[in-house]
């Protein structure tokens, strides 16, 4: 297992299309729910403990080799918003391209061939971690960190928020991320033995509603 490979995969500059997405932050800013560092922190904490938990469990399970088709259907079932499902698949397809070029592997090729238009992003993230020689905990961390760093970066652009404040928000979420990542690995191990039914189904209704409103906007900075 290579610690350096984790840095490559977790790097915000890893070319997998994430820069065009705000993780729901743009919709939250438009609705006046995120206005400063404190509300950004609340937004990210909420995301971390709802959709973030689900994504981390799925990524960790995929990294352990759980069936990608089952995991993908489980994500569909846990994502009511069609706009979010579409964004998740688009990001999954883009991550797959980058991962196959970076860590060529027959297993990744097989997942790509099952989903030519993209599997959900956490499924691909877990498969990419596996191809990179990383473990379930690494995949969970990557998923969780992306889930909060994307909105934080986006809010810097959307609100002109002080970038030091935004980075401080991420640092204050570190303990939460540690706990959620450890729990996600335990859940992922149970997915391998008991199937995807044991995956949590937490959701944040405002993220889903915001994603639909955002998708209908003619003028926006981020794709989702």
């Amino acid at each position: 297992m290579s610690r350096a490979a984790l840095l490559v995969l977790a790097d915000g500059r890893f070319p997998a299309g994430g820069h065009a997405h705000s993780g729901g932050a743009e919709a939250a800013v438009r609705a006046g729910r995120v206005t400063d560092a404190a509300s950004l922190e609340a937004f990210c904490r909420g995301r971390l403990h709802t959709s973030g938990v689900v994504a981390a469990c799925v990524a960790a399970a995929a990294a352990l080799g759980a069936d990608p088709g089952d995991l993908d259907r489980a994500v569909d079932a846990r994502t009511p918003s069609p706009a979010l499902r579409a964004a998740g698949r688009r990001l999954g397809r883009q991550l797959m391209r980058a991962a196959r070029a970076t860590w060529p592997s027959p297993e990744l090729d097989a997942v790509a061939s099952l989903f030519p238009k993209g599997a959900h992003q956490p499924v691909v993230l877990g498969a990419a971690a596996r191809a990179a020689g990383l473990g379930a905990l690494d995949a969970a961390y990557c998923s969780l960190y992306e889930g909060v760093s994307g909105p934080a970066t986006a809010v810097v652009r959307l609100l002109g928020l002080d970038p030091f404040d935004a980075t401080g928000v991420l640092a204050r979420l570190a303990d939460d991320m540690d706990r959620v990542a450890r729990d996600a690995v335990e859940t992922a191990e149970r997915v391998v033995s008991d199937g995807v039914g044991v995956l949590p189904a937490r959701s944040a209704p405002l993220l889903e509603i915001g994603a639909e409103a955002h998708a209908a906007r003619a003028v926006r900075l981020f794709a989702s």
Partner: peptide, 21 residues
Amino acid sequence: AVETGACPHTAIRDDISANLE
């Protein structure tokens, strides 16, 4: 149309995945 998340140069240079797609 490709959406670039406020960074047009990123989408054509540093992270070309959406354009390739």
